[in-house]
Write a protein that binds this DNA or RNA. Sequence first.
DNA 1: TGCTAGCACTCAAATAAACCGAGTGCCAAA
DNA 2: TTTGGCACTCGGTTTATTTGAGTGCTAGCA
Lengths: 341, 341
Amino acid sequence: MTLSDRKKKILYSLVDDYIVTAEPVSSKKIQEEHLPDYSSATIRNELSALESMGYLVQPHTSSGRIPSQKAFRFYVDQLMVTPLSRDEISAIESHFTDKISSMQDVMSRVAEVLAEVTHYTSVAVGDSIGKETINKIRLVQLTQGNALVLIVSDRNVFKDHIIDVPVNLSEKDLENVNNWLNKLFTPKKFDELKDIDLVDVLNDELKSLHEIFEDVLKILREVSMKKQEIITQGASQILDYPEYNDIDNAKQFLQTIEQKQKLAKLFSTEDNGLELNIKIGREEEQDLPDGCSVVTAKVGLNQNSIGNIGVIGPVRMDYKKVVSVLDHIGKLIEKLLNEEE
Amino acid sequence: MTLSDRKKKILYSLVDDYIVTAEPVSSKKIQEEHLPDYSSATIRNELSALESMGYLVQPHTSSGRIPSQKAFRFYVDQLMVTPLSRDEISAIESHFTDKISSMQDVMSRVAEVLAEVTHYTSVAVGDSIGKETINKIRLVQLTQGNALVLIVSDRNVFKDHIIDVPVNLSEKDLENVNNWLNKLFTPKKFDELKDIDLVDVLNDELKSLHEIFEDVLKILREVSMKKQEIITQGASQILDYPEYNDIDNAKQFLQTIEQKQKLAKLFSTEDNGLELNIKIGREEEQDLPDGCSVVTAKVGLNQNSIGNIGVIGPVRMDYKKVVSVLDHIGKLIEKLLNEEE
DNA sequence: TGCTAGCACTCAAATAAACCGAGTGCCAAA
DNA sequence: TTTGGCACTCGGTTTATTTGAGTGCTAGCA
């Protein structure tokens, strides 16, 4: 069943108002501030109808109405990206004047600027490593007896692991090992390493060095298990919103923010092709605290995603602004990554 | 002026009590729960004396007393490490059963366990890089035209930077460059790099490759500026304490926790030879939010510090427990690092 | 038929008043 | 010097009262 035009206008205005004030909205207020062409009595009738349709809730008989989750869903489904203010744009861009030094760097800057501009808590989740492709592996001898394992994937360089090697390993041996490492492990995705069994693939010539290969494989597997980078920013800002004046609510929210694993799940939206994803309240998500909404977006160049970003805040969040800011940042990152190439 | 024995006992009991209840302590309560040998009237007289000496404060005429900062200082100066409970010990040790994979790993696990066992917000700050010694520098050719800059210090390996090199660079040239890099920059502390001027040191032979040296120096300087790793855990736990039922207090606290730079200053105690450092309220520190205390400790093996850890919480924190837990963790880490060798 | 002005009714929130009791200070006696 | 006793204080809680924003409904008008 579809809403009459007037009902839509009224509902939209009411949500718009509620997003700003967090107070039940009265018929009179809607009339005065949004729709002066109808009397408050008329609006009252419509409100009453909208309530019985499940869009509105009345905290008690003689109060205004507040939007239900259904109303917010209606609201965001109508949303369009709106232009940002000059100040907001310059605030965003000021964070990206320096050269990008790494993907982590991008993500942490995005988190900062998102929190700053939207005034909500921002989250940035890097993509997990399992799906990256290993492009190059190389042992670099550091001193007699140990070497650094250098792994280059399509998105990262890993250089955190040092292994023991035979003291008498010659340059030539090393070269040989390096060749074999690349033959064995590239180009492969990290996730594919699960199934490799070294016994099958090492020929006799390499048997004497099998420890090296085992060590490297172990490291590759460790790297692939490495937890995703998860950055949050501006958690304390949540306390500026009246719905979190209640200590218990605030605590629940902050605990969610601290549980990085759950957060990651919340923000790593399954790949539904959409660039933007809005979750309102407990609609479907278990891990979302009651009364919270989440807006997420992918960042990256074309197919080549580097992670997800977004904000988490009260259901009554300023979706318009958040969506617009995410849109702007997304495009900006895309441009920056393009220039990097 | 020194306190009489009885005054000490009373003051100590009062602080002990206040740490648990966060409520003004009455003479009667001290008598009943700590010192049944004196009447409440006697204790009242002593309390009155202690108040005029600045150790106690009375929120209003007909209430019990709360300890002043001076009283807490008295209290912690008497503090001894007390044995932990079996549960606490096993909680701590359960976090350190896996092999240590990196210093960051140690720090983040310490932060976790500290927050868990003390129920306060924990902070772990890695030592800043400037004072590390560069032991080895090496360019590793990745593909034609670019190379990874590998820097090994006495505590870390840095491998996050890739530079352009001439496409026609031969193995031999690279070798030569590597030798020179080590001649120029090792063994030096990062901080010493400020003063180096390349023009002075490059001979004619290397002039053609001067870009490489400049790039490497730039990277070295970048690395030395790299911000310290700062990890916090359990921030939401602060809301469990009644002094943070006030939203404004809570917000102030959380904002402090989010300002990693200030936090780092707070926890990187200047090297005064002490292993443990307790800062109570605003005693001297500007950056400490009002009503907060900080207990910090160094972690590391002998002289070889890897960072500082500690907790931040209400002035009325359970110093006894915090100190004991820090002591235990410190010793545990020392043992683990020793085994690593 | 649809809109609106008017009015009685509701109820949360703000304000005021009354009460309670934990705790102190002080005095006089042991 | 210590202690029992007692009057006094004052924050916190409970109860009563007031206020006003907001609704639902009805009757009249276009």
